[in-house]
Write a protein that binds this DNA or RNA. Structure first.
Lengths: 341, 341
DNA sequence: TTGCTTTGTCAAAGCGCTTTGAAATTTCCT
DNA sequence: AGGAAATTTCAAAGCGCTTTGACAAAGCAA
């Protein structure tokens, strides 16, 4: 059933039917009623591809999903997507997800943009100096990035959390508890958030005349395995760190396994603060020793970004172009005074 | 840059350029070279919506993502999606994800199908008697379901794991270890896999003249919280079960927390077997007491389903219409002889 | 040379929708 | 009743692509 058939059935022109459906004023209410009834009876739905071709609007948000045979699936991605979805469903928007090799992200994003399949783009996993930014700006398609990038004016629409402040505050807490030997268990070194978190920690340390040692820093994919490995390495150091900052509860999961295996007590021998993206599976309060965290909901960020994106597409703006969310520092049992030794 | 502009630039007709691009034989090799070079220089990409309109093919797989404000994000969904993506990227396919309220799944699926945005559909979270099946069959669009449904001939394309055998075998193992008091911690009661797993367990028990008691059965969403709650309830029973079958490692996570809190020892006081979807975050060997599991990779299922779906769309078939994967029963430390009491 | 096939190219139709500009109809005022 | 204004409907163009059927050009045999 297409528009032509429907209009023939009704004895109206395609124009009138189309207008009746799209809420244009220049159509008799009685006629509109009739059309709407016919639509309900026949189950007619406009072909989206045709609609897209004619209007240029698709009702969809595009995003690139990093993937590869060896590439481990990322809970953070799923959680964020849930947030996007929660908002999208309210506006009858959908997503076009283009899976792409992480090395191919710029090209994949361009393909997606000029495919004509999407109205707006969402970009995550921002790098320190992200090559996608220049491309996005040149594209004349609405977009929002999650995170930020160094190296250019922040004149693009983003939503980010204040990573620097989060880790600065976390470090301050540990300093106040008397810790002096710090370690950082971070995400991949090229990612923007990792750089900022590191900066936050370093700033807090420097204020006290302390330094973050190279061998007390790990930059890895945020899996529990990597957390375990990194922590095992830290624990073997001559000057064992007593205060750990951890970029994800996922890393913390592995790290804590290592602490337990070494027969050490979390919150006594080792204090740990992790960043909590509020993953339903990894509630910090459910850890055997509840985790002190810096918290910011990834899902909430997804909802907000979808709001902005959809709002822009529907011209319902204006939305603030830049948003920087503060994180909460929530103290639980995984932090305690530095051990005397 | 569109086809018209490109062809004018080359002094060729749109026909020839289109044919050159799509590998048709009736175009001079020299001309094709020239076209390809121009494409590279101009960065021309065909508009997908137009392509879709003209060919009826979109190069995309549609799926419905269940979501709602209260709805907890599901790691299983993300893991499966990663599998789909891994295969899709090889064929330059993408996904159209329609978020929808779980109550609205039939309608959402229909909207997606007739939107003209997708070539094939994927459907998961099969119910015991799934209303979507009839609709899918009437749709004349390729689809594959993950799981199965009762109530009709299995004459539709599916990929499922042998849930019944998995839990039958798991129960047999526990029976051999002398257990007689069983409990089942299952997924939502209306879902097909939950029904089959229960059947498997019940069958094994019945062979020994045992029964699965009502108060030793829990059907819930598969979150760790629900696992905790269910296990707490089991532990308070007068006739405490000693053998637990658990439909997901996520549920097991909460269940084990409850066991620990009760001061009981996993693998001694309580034996537990969980179904393992091979989630990177919840490796059974990383549990404090490594988990005995029935294993089948969700991601691998995603890859396989994408293969079949894309193969069908590209007419590269024939693919087997029905696949039933066996699970592996892997014994670790969470199972042991029934305690003497 | 003529006639026939093969090769390379093109103009035009069509996919299903929206939107423009004009035509037909009704309503209102004098 | 006559004419202007407002309302309702329509035919046709266009979005960017593929594909059909036709047409030159070239190759070959007789």
């Amino acid at each position: 059933m297409n528009l032509k058939q429907l209009s023939e059935l009704l004895g109206l022109s395609q124009t009138t039917v189309s207008r009746a459906l799209n809420g244009y004023p220049e159509v008799n209410e009685a006629t509109r009623e009739r059309v709407l009834r016919a639509v309900k009876e026949t189950g007619y739905r406009p072909n989206k591809a045709a609609q897209r071709l004619a209007t240029g609007k698709a009702g969809s948000i595009g995003l690139v999903m990093p993937t590869a045979p060896g590439h481990q699936s990322d809970v953070h991605f799923g959680e964020f997507l849930t947030g996007l979805g929660e908002e999208a469903v309210r506006h009858d928007f959908h997503f076009v997800i283009m899976p792409a090799d992480p090395d191919d992200e710029v090209a994949a994003l361009r393909r997606l943009a000029i495919s004509g399949n999407v109205d707006a783009l969402f970009v995550a996993y921002m790098r320190g100096h992200d090559p996608r930014l220049a491309m996005l700006k040149s594209l004349s398609m609405p977009f929002v990035v999650h995170g930020r990038s160094f190296g250019s004016e922040p004149d693009y629409p983003y939503l980010d959390i204040d990573n620097e402040a989060a880790f600065y505050d976390a470090a301050r807490l540990l300093l106040q508890l008397g810790h002096t030997r710090f370690a950082l268990m971070n995400g991949p070194a090229h990612l923007d958030f990792a750089i900022r978190r590191r900066n936050g920690l370093v700033a807090a340390l420097n204020e006290r005349g302390l330094e973050l040692k190279e061998d007390c820093t790990s930059h890895t994919v945020m899996s529990d395995e990597e957390g375990l490995i990194a922590m095992e390495r830290f624990l073997q150091l001559a000057e064992r760190p007593t205060a750990i900052l951890c970029s994800s509860t996922v890393l913390a999961l592995g790290a804590i396994r290592a602490v337990n295996q070494a027969g050490l007590k979390l919150g006594e021998d080792i204090s740990l603060i992790a960043h909590d993206d509020v993953l339903p599976l990894l509630k910090p309060e459910n850890f055997s020793v509840p985790l002190t965290t810096t918290r910011s909901s990834l899902r909430a960020a997804g909802v907000r970004i979808a709001q902005r994106l959809i709002g822009t597409v529907k011209q319902a703006g204006p939305f603030p172009e830049q948003e920087l969310w503060k994180t909460e520092l929530i103290v639980r049992a995984s932090t305690g005074p530095a051990p005397q030794s």
